[in-house]
Amino acid sequence: MSEPSYDDADLRVAAAAAVRAPSMHNSQPWRLRLSEGAIEVLADRSRQLAVADGAGWALRVACGAATFNARLALAARGTPAAITLLPRDADGDVIARLTPGSPRPPTYPEQALAAAIPRRHSHRRPFWPDAVPSQARVELIEAARAEGAWLDLLVGMGPLTVFAEIAQSADRVLRRDPLYQSELTAWSHTDGGPDGVPVTAGAPAAEPHDLLPQRDFGEHRRAPGRDFEPEPLVGVLGTMGDLPVDQVVAGQALQRVLLTVVDQGLACSMISQPIEVPAARDQLRRSLRRSGSPQMTLRIGYGHPGRPSPRRDLADILATDDPTGR
């Protein structure tokens, strides 16, 4: 009996889900290919942000998130995958290898999270003041734990104020870098392109009284009375280590948390400035009294419905160098 293998139809299902993953500036730094019956997720180095992500942390987190989506879509299709991260026998661009396991019906949680994939997007505008219920908070923490990561939710104005000071300080450091700002501008657009962040998806222009920093993807005047929530729910997602494989793990955990946010009827935006600046990241870790490494921070709440940012066509992310020639 021949070994089970994925085919082109499986690859396209996995790719259609993977492309919906989040990435810094919506750069979408991934590709997928078939290789000897397995599906591989590869880093697209041509899309790595040269200034904001010279070390590749954001690329690996994004590829981890894309890997989780691919895994989830295959499981929902009834063809779950066994996963190997950063395979030792592969070239340096292979982030993950998905090999087919025994066919089985998808579980209810897999179906629910898979249904959330096309609806997930970043909500950068103000949230409503409604508090996130305790059960939803538990679900988010468990989502990170299920993927080998941790999620700390900051409770009370004391920890939140400390976090805000760290995040604002990191944001000021990044704003002072003209090359960083030029790169950010280059990934903002008004023309409906297949990548980058549309200016319509950006946050409203910052005001001095805003607690948390926001990316400047375009100047938007906020409507009267639509200030950001004074006490947002902030989560810090992290891993025990900070090796490249830990960053891929963080990406998978991040995506599971983000899809759980959607499934719980919540909204979320990512705040990566405290992670991008090494001194701020270390300060954040110490403020949490954690021995691990923060990998992403999240703002979670209830928001107006929005729409996902554009994505590239599948033809653009499917690699054609399958060694089997298929």
Rank of each mutant, 00 (worst) to 15 (best):
residue 38 A to S: 09
residue 176 R to C: 02
residue 125 R to C: 10
residue 303 G to I: 12
residue 260 T to C: 07
residue 238 G to V: 04
residue 40 E to G: 06
residue 56 G to L: 05
residue 91 D to A: 00
residue 7 D to I: 08
residue 42 L to H: 03
residue 39 I to L: 04
residue 289 R to W: 09
residue 197 V to E: 02
residue 224 P to E: 15
residue 262 V to Y: 12
residue 241 G to H: 01
residue 196 G to F: 08
residue 176 R to H: 03
residue 322 D to F: 09
residue 10 D to A: 07
residue 163 F to E: 11
residue 17 A to N: 10
residue 289 R to I: 14
residue 41 V to H: 08
residue 61 V to K: 00
residue 114 A to F: 07
residue 102 S to G: 14
residue 206 A to Y: 03
residue 34 L to I: 01
residue 237 L to M: 04
residue 71 R to C: 15
residue 243 L to R: 09
residue 78 G to Y: 05
residue 290 R to N: 07
residue 263 D to R: 11
residue 199 V to A: 15
residue 276 E to W: 05
residue 281 R to T: 11
residue 156 G to I: 04
residue 232 P to Q: 11
residue 167 A to D: 13
residue 238 G to W: 00
residue 214 Q to D: 12
residue 306 G to F: 13
residue 41 V to T: 03
residue 171 D to H: 12
residue 75 A to L: 09
residue 25 H to P: 00
residue 81 A to K: 06
residue 290 R to Q: 15
residue 204 P to F: 10
residue 270 M to E: 15
residue 212 L to Y: 14
residue 47 R to L: 15
residue 64 G to L: 03
residue 77 R to C: 03
residue 245 V to R: 07
residue 45 R to N: 11
residue 144 A to S: 12
residue 88 R to M: 10
residue 63 C to T: 15
residue 234 V to T: 05
residue 230 P to Q: 00
residue 86 L to M: 01
residue 44 D to T: 04
residue 309 S to I: 09
residue 147 E to N: 05
residue 325 G to K: 01
residue 11 L to S: 07
residue 64 G to P: 02
residue 122 S to T: 03
residue 95 I to K: 10
residue 321 D to C: 13
residue 193 G to P: 08
residue 277 V to Q: 10
residue 160 L to N: 02
residue 99 T to F: 01
residue 222 R to D: 01
residue 290 R to S: 14
residue 113 L to S: 01
residue 117 I to H: 02
residue 279 A to G: 09
residue 212 L to K: 12
residue 24 M to W: 10
residue 248 V to D: 04
residue 270 M to Y: 12
residue 176 R to M: 01
residue 36 E to N: 00
residue 238 G to H: 02
residue 172 R to Y: 07
residue 110 E to K: 06
residue 30 W to V: 13
residue 61 V to F: 07
residue 225 G to A: 02
residue 109 P to Y: 01
residue 37 G to W: 03
residue 166 I to K: 06
residue 220 H to K: 13
residue 111 Q to I: 00
residue 319 A to S: 13
residue 96 A to V: 09
residue 246 D to M: 01
residue 219 E to F: 12
residue 169 S to K: 15
residue 96 A to S: 01
residue 43 A to W: 04
residue 74 L to I: 05
residue 9 A to G: 00
residue 224 P to G: 10
residue 302 Y to F: 15
residue 295 Q to Y: 05
residue 115 A to V: 04
residue 150 W to G: 13
residue 52 A to T: 15
residue 222 R to K: 03
residue 119 R to F: 05
residue 33 R to E: 04
residue 22 P to A: 15
residue 252 Q to T: 12
residue 262 V to W: 13
residue 180 Y to N: 05
residue 174 L to P: 01
residue 11 L to H: 06
residue 23 S to D: 07
residue 286 R to I: 13
residue 26 N to H: 11
residue 179 L to F: 04
residue 118 P to K: 03
residue 43 A to R: 05
residue 191 D to H: 08
residue 207 E to Q: 14
residue 131 A to P: 08
residue 179 L to Y: 06
residue 304 H to G: 05
residue 256 R to E: 10
residue 159 P to M: 02
residue 80 P to A: 06
residue 27 S to Q: 04
residue 217 F to I: 14
residue 156 G to E: 04
residue 244 P to M: 09
residue 101 G to P: 12
residue 187 W to K: 12
residue 28 Q to M: 06
residue 120 R to M: 08
